[in-house]
Amino acid sequence: MSAMATRERILDAALQSLAEGGFEALTIGRLAARTGLSKSGLFAHFGGQEALHCAVVDAAAKRFQDAVTAPALTRRDPVERIETLAGRWLDWLSTPGLGKPCPMVQCAVSAPGLAGGAGAHAIAIRARFRPFVARLARQAAAAGRLAHITDPDQFAFEFEAIGLGAAFAGQGQDPGADLMRARQAFRTLLSGPPS
């Protein structure tokens, strides 16, 4: 198995560990046991706990990009981009092992406890999302498709708040109902204030 394939296998196991127990469960020792590799083998791939945490954050961000943001950008219509982003994000949040629990949310919540500079790295990666949504909102408003958006930054804040609310509510007793409420909240945000 090539070094790259081994690294990917390690990151897959790390993301699974993250989903099961958060960053507290993501140690070199536990990951070595899970993958059947030696601690020294893991150190050879990552160089330590901080590098491992940074690599896991990057792997989670790449999966989020592939599953959520990239499909939205394939849409030509600016409103469809935002609708696709909302739908794909909720699909991500409701898919066990993919975004349930959401590794990006776990990274942001766990940032203070991550090794070395990995916490700042997690916050920086997570901080890219809201400006991305604001940019999509500006494009839609400029195209006259969402004239009610007068403050794209506020729109992006509310959009993100709905998704984060769904991420946390989805762990509750009725995740299906919470998901339906989140979809309705996105529709309401996109339709604008009542006339």
Rank of each mutant, 00 (worst) to 15 (best):
Gly47Cys: 07
Asp58His: 12
Pro152Gly: 08
Ala142Asp: 14
Thr188Lys: 14
Leu90Pro: 03
Leu42Pro: 00
Ile123Ala: 13
Ser40Ala: 14
Leu114Cys: 10
Arg128Thr: 14
His121Thr: 02
Phe155Gln: 03
Ala108Met: 13
Ala13His: 06
Ala108Glu: 10
Val56Asn: 04
Asp58Phe: 09
Pro101Ala: 09
Ala44Thr: 07
Gln49Pro: 02
Gly117Ala: 15
Arg145Gly: 01
Asp178Phe: 13
Ala55Gly: 07
Ala55Asn: 02
Gly144Ile: 01
Arg128Glu: 08
Arg181His: 11
His148Cys: 09
Arg145Phe: 05
Thr188Tyr: 06
Thr84Ser: 13
Ser38Lys: 14
Pro193Tyr: 10
Ala143Ser: 10
Leu190Cys: 08
Ala143Asn: 07
Thr188Trp: 08
Ala156Lys: 00
Arg63Asn: 13
Ser94Ile: 00
Ala19Tyr: 12
Met1Phe: 12
Leu190Gly: 05
Ile162Lys: 03
Leu189Ala: 09
Met4Trp: 03
Thr69Asn: 04
Ala177Cys: 00
Gly116His: 10
Arg9Trp: 06
Gly116Ala: 15
Ala33Asn: 10
Leu179Ala: 14
Ile28Met: 15
Ser191Asp: 11
Gly113Cys: 04
Asp174Arg: 14
Pro96Asn: 13
Val133Gln: 04
Ile28Pro: 01
Arg76Ser: 11
Gly48Val: 09
Phe159Lys: 00
Leu190Pro: 07
Ala13Ser: 12
Leu85Ser: 12
Ala142Trp: 06
Phe23Leu: 00
Leu31Ser: 02
Leu18Ala: 02
Ala51Lys: 15
Ile149Arg: 00
Val57Ile: 11
Arg181Lys: 14
Glu20Thr: 08
Arg181Asp: 06
Trp92Met: 04
